[in-house]
Structures are given as structure tokens and as C-alpha cells.
Design a protein around this nucleic acid. Structure first.
Lengths: 137, 137
DNA sequence: GTAGATGCAAACTGTTTGCGAGGTG
DNA sequence: CACCTCGCAAACAGTTTGCATCTAC
């Protein structure tokens, strides 16, 4: 049984057919799907799923901290499961490919910086945009 | 004469009434105005300015690297003059206030990280979200 | 059985665009 | 004068919402 499903059960969410479909898609997604992706994938299992339901489900899950919303500056929201280890993103400017990374030192520095400015760090977003070194030859 | 105006002149932009108004607003903006802000402020000088023109002007300026587009995850694009020293943003979760900061060490770390992943860093976005330490008492 | 979830379509928000009129260089 | 830019309104894309119906608990 999926981790997400279990989590939602624990929260006490009503587990409808539609929510199960969306959760299943999220569960097995290796990428960072947007609403349209989720809708398309879940529709294969549940053909008369409505996109409004996907919006509602995803919004709900985001508010419950089950999902994290990502916005890479193209105006399209993407989602990923929130629970996994924290990481940031590097976006390949040529291909749009998204690479996840984590760096302890940067995390610490951010914490310190916020405090220096008089704030408690509640969250952050770090995105690196780059091009493959290989492509330079 | 404003720096922005001069820059646009050098680029060879046609300097219409409307563009002058928008540039003037940007020139003196101490915050990070969105399109609506720009439209309202510029409208005071140029009452029959159209919001479509603001969109067109801002888009143009962004493409010419005169402006930088900021997106803080609420779906509203904000703008700032691109030329100033690079900096990142800390967003106050309670008030929405935006504080600018710059940290050499973080900049360097990002560069190194990208290279470690096989990329040349072309840009980045770092946003810290926090709450005032003072508010905790 | 009942509160809550769904599908549908209409409404909304931020942004873009086609067109004829107007202004800049 | 030619080309670019403008204002207007209509078109768009992504997202939200009102309402009647349906369903998980």
C-alpha cells in the first residue's frame, strides 16, 4: 500500500475513487508533474475524472503538506511528494530537465542568513539554472 | 535623466509617452511592483495609458535585460531593475515584505555545486521565506 | 443518512493578441 | 512617410467555483 495513501488515511481524508487515482499517479511519478500531467495519467485509470477534481485534490494535498508546489518561472505549477528528504533543483536550460540535489552547507548558510536578517527561516526555494559543461565544446 | 531611460535610448527603443511613464515609475520604485502596480502608478501621470501597453513594455524590457521578472509563488509576476548588483530575496511570510540580501559565500557555493553536477551556472533563484524572530515572544 | 466530494460549465485572473488609429524618428 | 506603438476588446491559459448529483463512512 502506498505511502501517500497511508498518510491520507491517517489524516482522515475521505478516500474516493478519484483521490485514489491521483494519489496512485503521484506515488509512482518519478518526475515533477503539472496538473495536466496528473490529469492525463489518472484519466487512463479513471476515464471520467474531471480536471476540476485534480485541482481540488492537489490543492488539498498541498495545504496538508502532503505535496509541495514547484514553480520554475514558466507559470506552470508542478508538484512533488513533500515527505521525501529535502532537496533543491537544478534546471537544464536547454532541455528543461530537472535535477535534484542537496547540499548541507548551503542549507546551513541560509539558516544563518535569515537569522542575521532577524528572521526565522520557515522555508526556501533554491533553483539553479544552467547548461551542460559538455555542450561547450 | 534616469538611468533606465538612458539605457533604453542607447538600445534604440522608440521612446513614446507611455514608455517614458512606465520607465519613470520603475526608475523611482523602491519595491518590487507587479503589472497592476505599474499600471496604477503610471496612470496617474498618463491617465489613458492601457494595461496592455504596460504588459508589452515590461515584456520588452525583460527581453532586453533591462528588467528582471520575479515570481514568488503567488502567481503574480513582479519586476525590478536588472542592472543593480545581484541580490536574492527574503520574503516575510506574515506581511509579504521583501528584503533584499547578498551573500558572497552562497553565490560561490552555488557555482561549485552546479559544476559538480556537470553544469555551467547561468542563473539562479534563491528565496528565503521566514517570520520575524521578534514576533515569537 | 449525511457531510463531504464530484462533474460540468460558467466565471475569474493574469496575460497575450488582432486590428484599425495614431505618433515617432 | 514608413514603421512602430497604442488603445480597445476579444481571445487565451490556468485555475476556481456554484450547483445539483452522487458516494464514502
Amino acid at each position: 500500500m502506498g505511502i501517500l495513501l497511508k498518510k491520507c488515511e491517517k489524516i482522515g481524508l475521505r478516500l474516493t475513487e478519484q483521490r485514489r487515482s491521483v494519489l496512485a499517479v503521484l506515488e509512482e511519478a518519478k518526475d515533477h508533474p503539472n496538473i495536466h500531467d496528473l490529469f492525463e495519467r489518472a484519466s487512463k485509470v479513471d476515464p471520467n475524472l474531471s480536471i476540476a477534481t485534480v485541482y481540488r485534490t492537489v490543492k488539498l494535498l498541498e495545504e496538508l503538506n502532503v505535496l509541495t508546489k514547484l514553480e520554475f518561472g514558466d507559470g506552470i505549477a508542478r508538484y512533488e511528494v513533500a515527505d521525501r528528504d529535502h532537496h533543491d533543483h537544478l534546471i537544464d536550460l536547454k532541455t528543461g530537465k530537472v535535477i535534484e540535489f542537496y547540499d548541507e552547507e548551503i542549507e546551513k548558510l541560509q539558516q544563518q542568513l535569515a537569522r542575521k536578517l532577524g528572521y526565522r527561516l520557515r522555508g526556501h526555494r533554491l533553483e539553479l539554472y544552467g547548461t551542460l559543461l559538455e555542450d561547450e565544446k
